[in-house]
């Protein structure tokens, strides 16, 4: 019988505790996409939260005037790569939802280009998610979702919708793009919720 014991042997051979099961550390930033890269000018960019009773929108200048967080976090892609200690700047979803009243518990994120992904509202609040517009001190590159992407680092990275343009509140959990096509409706990397 073989088993793994933590705390014995050289540190360099230990698995990093920050890596979820089945993940491999990378130092580059692979690009995954389901279609052409939308080119969205910040002059035309708008972010909208739609609820059962109405909507709240911010243009780029209004968005930049909100409280901005510096975020250092690990990210985990369902295609088995993880990147540790990434640096972002963005607006917390807590800040955005201060302006929003809703009874609904589920969210569909919508992106420029048509991509969608679903996340329960309670997994976007309490410091767990941002709309990020800078990575590593630079404006977010379009191929990584610029001008702004959702950042939900505790879930697999397909939930961190690139080119995000808004959130739609929903009364029940509905699958987004990849979730309709084979990927898990929730996507917790620590539980390896990769596929249906």
């Amino acid at each position: 019988m073989s088993f793994i014991t933590r705390g014995f042997g050289g540190r360099s051979r230990e698995r990093d505790d920050r890596l979820p099961p089945g993940q491999t550390l990378v130092h580059d930033f692979p690009v995954l996409s389901a279609g052409p890269t939308p080119e969205v000018d910040t002059a035309e960019w708008e972010f909208t939260i739609r609820t059962e009773s109405g909507s709240q929108s911010w243009n780029w200048d209004e968005f930049m005037a909100l409280d901005i967080d510096e975020v250092s976090t690990d990210i985990h892609c369902v295609t088995h790569w993880s990147k540790l200690g990434t640096s972002w700047r963005g607006v917390s979803l807590d800040t955005l939802f201060e302006h929003v009243e809703t009874e609904y518990d589920y969210v569909m994120a919508h992106s420029y280009g048509g991509y969608t992904t679903n996340v329960p509202l309670d997994e976007l609040l309490d410091g767990k998610a941002w709309v990020a517009f800078e990575f590593d001190g630079e404006p977010l590159d379009p191929e990584h979702g610029g001008p702004a992407r959702l950042l939900v680092p505790h879930l697999y990275f397909w939930k961190s919708a690139k080119w995000v343009r808004g959130l739609e509140m929903m009364p029940s959990d509905e699958p987004g793009f990849w979730e309709q096509n084979g990927y898990h409706i929730h996507g917790d990397p620590w539980k390896e919720e990769r596929y249906w």
Binding site: P30, S33, A34, T79, W158, W178, G182
Partner: peptide, 9 residues
């Protein structure tokens, strides 16, 4: 066809 490690669209 847009292909990546995530799948093909």
């Amino acid at each position: 066809v847009y292909s990546s490690d995530a799948g093909s669209v």
